[in-house]
Design a protein around this nucleic acid. Sequence first.
DNA 1: GACAACCTGACC
DNA 2: GGTCAGGTTGTC
Length: 284
Amino acid sequence: MPEFPEVETVRRQLNETISGYTVGELWFDAVSVLRPNPEKISVELTGKKILSVDRKGKWIVINFEDTTSCLVIHLKLTGRLFVKRIDEKQAPYTHVILGLARNTICSFSENNCDTTLQFSTMRKFGYLEVMKKAELMEKFSNLGPDFYEDVTLNMFADALASRKIAIKTLLMNQDILSGIGNIYANDALWMAKIDPQTKAHSLDKGQREGLFTALKEVLAEGLALGGASDQWFLNVFGEKGGYQNHFKVYGKKGTPCTRCGNEIKYTKIAGRGTYYCSSCQHNL
DNA sequence: GACAACCTGACC
DNA sequence: GGTCAGGTTGTC
């Protein structure tokens, strides 16, 4: 589910709904999604008051008033975060429930949690990890700048120069630029009329600018629509996004290109499904 | 770079 | 039975 539009949608909602709450009891039924382990998360976070929720790339960071530790979350492919009362219906594949209350350390047996943060994931790729702030800085130092928030046209041009890999592979490499994933990479390349196989360094100035603009536009569109709910994505309130109804080429294998009428093709680039129009997306 | 691994389910 | 899935990480 998660690229910039989906993760930012969740971050904003979390920031508004759980800031100010104190962490209470932790329930779980899958050890692997809690890192380094459930006990460490309980010990580090119980009684801590949530200050804010941040994001870099596709990573969500929950900050606490006590700034020594933070909770880092990655949704990977099927992760969902919900904020709901404990008596509300649980989503399928819910593996973690964190009790939250105003000014008290709540527990489920005492039934005094005002709300909860729930993590659901079918494939169990995503996880919640408690980290020291210094460890987080180290982790993020290896992550490329957040494309939507922080990358300028000059930075984008620098990132492409001298890299002889396919432009689509570059866009999806989070060490170079963070936040762009498979849906928006496919659609932006179509918008910019660039063949996804084109070597990054070989794009000319006009193509670089066109792709930069297309990426910013398509990410803004995805965010404005509350993300893409193609398979799994739901926001913190359990609602779908709308971008899946605005896909340009993603998932449209065999349908006519809306720009030139040719059939949308499907191939694999670096192991990821790639949709493109072989007629109007040019290679140099 | 390519590929397997992490997991589970849907679809052909 | 094989292939595919909004991602990242570690190994050739």
